[in-house]
């Protein structure tokens, strides 16, 4: 019972500080428009609870200057907001990558190994 209660909190804790770098990583290949970005992340159920929960984080990334946005006309429907990686965002992502690789390796060495 206790474990069941802990699970959602654990997922939230793991996503915090990680998900935003997934957004930055999705922008490495070039700009993407908001809905496309949110749908791509929303499809990863291990990473997000729902599409709407991603927007507060996108707003924070905009304020931090790690992404820039520009409005474009769309072939159908309202103008679209496109997200692009900034220089600061790319630097932050590179830093995260090196930290993450070391972090993941260390956790795997201890958690994922068979008890000896």
């Amino acid at each position: 019972m206790r474990n069941m209660e802990q699970q959602p909190g654990l997922a939230t804790a793991l996503r915090r500080g990680t998900l935003e770098f997934c957004v930055l990583a999705l922008l490495r290949g070039g700009e993407r428009y908001g809905v496309e970005l949110v749908r791509r992340l929303g499809a990863e159920t291990a990473l997000t609870t729902s599409e709407g929960t991603i927007y507060p984080m996108l707003s924070r990334l905009r304020r931090a200057g790690w992404v820039s946005t520009s409005w474009r006309e769309s072939p159908a429907g309202p103008p679209r907001r496109y997200y692009a990686l900034t220089h600061d965002g790319a630097t932050a992502l590179a830093h995260f990558r090196s930290e993450w690789v070391a972090f993941r390796a260390a956790v795997d060495r201890i958690v994922a190994s068979e008890p000896s």
């Binding site: 939230t12 915090r16 500080g17 609870t49 729902s50 709407g52 984080m57 931090a64």
Partner: peptide, 22 residues
């Protein structure tokens, strides 16, 4: 797909105190 308004509000609240960004 956008999700429960309460859950979105919780996410927005968490983002007010962002994790210590590297």
């Amino acid at each position: 797909r956008l999700g429960d308004p309460a859950v979105i509000a919780t996410a927005a609240r968490l983002d007010l105190t962002p994790p210590p960004a590297p």
